[in-house]
Design a protein around this nucleic acid. Sequence first.
DNA 1: CTTTCGCCCGTTAACGTTCACAATACGATG
DNA 2: CATCGTATTGTGAACGTTAACGGGCGAAAG
Lengths: 339, 339
Amino acid sequence: MKDVARAAGVSHMTVSRVVNGDPGVLPDKVSRVERAIRKLGYQRNDMARQLRRQGQTTGTIGLVVDDVANTFWSSLARAVEDVAMRQGFLVLVGSTNDDRRREQEVVSAFCSRRVDGLVVVPVAGSQRFLQTQMAMGTRVVCVDRPADGLDVDTVVVDNRVATRDAIAHLLGQGHERVGFLGDRDDIWTAEERYAGYIDALADAGIDVDPSYVRRGVRTATLATDAARELMESPRPPTAIFGGNNMITIGVIAALSRDHAPGTTALIGFDDFPLADRLAPPVTVVQQDPAALGTTAAQMLLARIEGDEAPARTVVLQTRLLQRGSGEIPPAVSRSGRRR
Amino acid sequence: MKDVARAAGVSHMTVSRVVNGDPGVLPDKVSRVERAIRKLGYQRNDMARQLRRQGQTTGTIGLVVDDVANTFWSSLARAVEDVAMRQGFLVLVGSTNDDRRREQEVVSAFCSRRVDGLVVVPVAGSQRFLQTQMAMGTRVVCVDRPADGLDVDTVVVDNRVATRDAIAHLLGQGHERVGFLGDRDDIWTAEERYAGYIDALADAGIDVDPSYVRRGVRTATLATDAARELMESPRPPTAIFGGNNMITIGVIAALSRDHAPGTTALIGFDDFPLADRLAPPVTVVQQDPAALGTTAAQMLLARIEGDEAPARTVVLQTRLLQRGSGEIPPAVSRSGRRR
DNA sequence: CTTTCGCCCGTTAACGTTCACAATACGATG
DNA sequence: CATCGTATTGTGAACGTTAACGGGCGAAAG
């Protein structure tokens, strides 16, 4: 900046004014400065800038998700980015892999870079450490899951009711043995979905048979293994519920590789690409990750711009998308079928 | 920091030393300072830090991709993030939507935040503006596509040869009418893949029939429309090549919705989830987006740590994954089939 | 002619941190 | 006892930028 000022024959303050589009600079000086900027390839140093402009926004928000490579989170990320961009905000993205330590690292790295706010998908455990960041003025919005003991804006869906309805849909068709494959049970959504499963069985007066339940299923491959195990038991389930998109995809592999496809009913939580092209097309509890992201980002930006209303929780809609796999009746043979 | 110093009864310099783990501080002062830090919720301001430590790295790199919501780019992004994280670097992510203006905005925003380097998927047109950033010391690595007139490390696959081989695979089975659906022709990969298509036809002595070619197909929906149009022509193609994952998915919708599935051959560029579960399973030219990301990130970090060797171009392997859809012979009826 | 006002522009200080160096204390050495 | 070295701590300046303020100057007003 000093170099530019010297080259243009003005003070560094005039350069600052030109860079920031201050109208009170004479046209000829503006053009002299602009020429010097171009010649020297000067670019404003936003770090120094933010240092001086205390209390002002840095125009940056952080997004902390489980895994950007999963379509669910990447759609959400894209939505957040679009909203942020449109308002001139930049987005930092970090994946936690649902690991608490990594979450802390990512959040800490973001905060020491003085982001104005965070959109967080909280991993299991207490988010108390976020409290200290919030005390320093960093605004936080939770998405997909609420944060333990933290009074912040939150955007979620009603996982429990949605799952209960989906299971009820299966039971309504005569299924009595419904398998449940869920993610790690310290993850809020997994817990809620399991509760919905229990609810539905209880409503129908069916006892929960733990041998039909597999929890802590973290990857598609593990889901395939678990589903295969279920199907190879003496009395296999006639329907399976996949607790998220990864799990559902894993279950599909197990069902289509080892068993006559289309004989076991399947409903998955979360829609995924090509679910409607499979044989049979997969019935899913559909939620809209982009809408989650958009809503969360908008709430966060509103907070950053000064919204001080009490924390709200927004519950977005889900929909049971009946495509076929969830409408398969129980197999005729009472004992299911072995390979 | 001053507050911490006062609370601990030491100078701000001692606080700085404690924060940075300098060993030459007496244990009792260390603990006094640490207590004060905890009590006041102090966190180091990395912006001010980087301001002072000129020439040092900021521990941040930028990633500029087409669209994070596309699995191809999100896998790549995840790989970049993993490599960066492991070396203590943070990743900024921006989507360009293959728009030149947005690319410039994103790059400029990253650079004014003083990223140490950029992994860029260049959009069409000249990347001259990157040159000025590079002159200022920002290291750049291009991935998936080379940058126009820019001497930088680049990681790509041989799109042209891979496509030629895939088309030749179709021709070898007796197909004579092969449709080609490609992305916008100012995108390097789309151009290369089209060239490979031409190469294969030329090798087989077949004239290119422009009515079998659709370029500028930007979304899955447009691909569906284009494929439907092709299939409804008087002499429809007996095989179709999908120029990227989005296009292939769009073509699948057209083929399975309107026509007897499994009668038209299909090969797609890029693998995608569930391609092996469709009926018929989709033959693809497989490339590894995670490997692209990993390689690019490693090259970038090496540059940042001082590697000054001449720019290299790494060409990663592709593989024709024969799953079935690419091995469908031409339909028996010479005129194809109408709905 | 003097005063006042408004417009441009420059000077100075400050943001939070680290670097370079000075100061202090204390034990060891001559 | 004087000197030196070493280990620990403090002081002041600097990084690039902007906020606050003040000065110069021409035009309008009294």
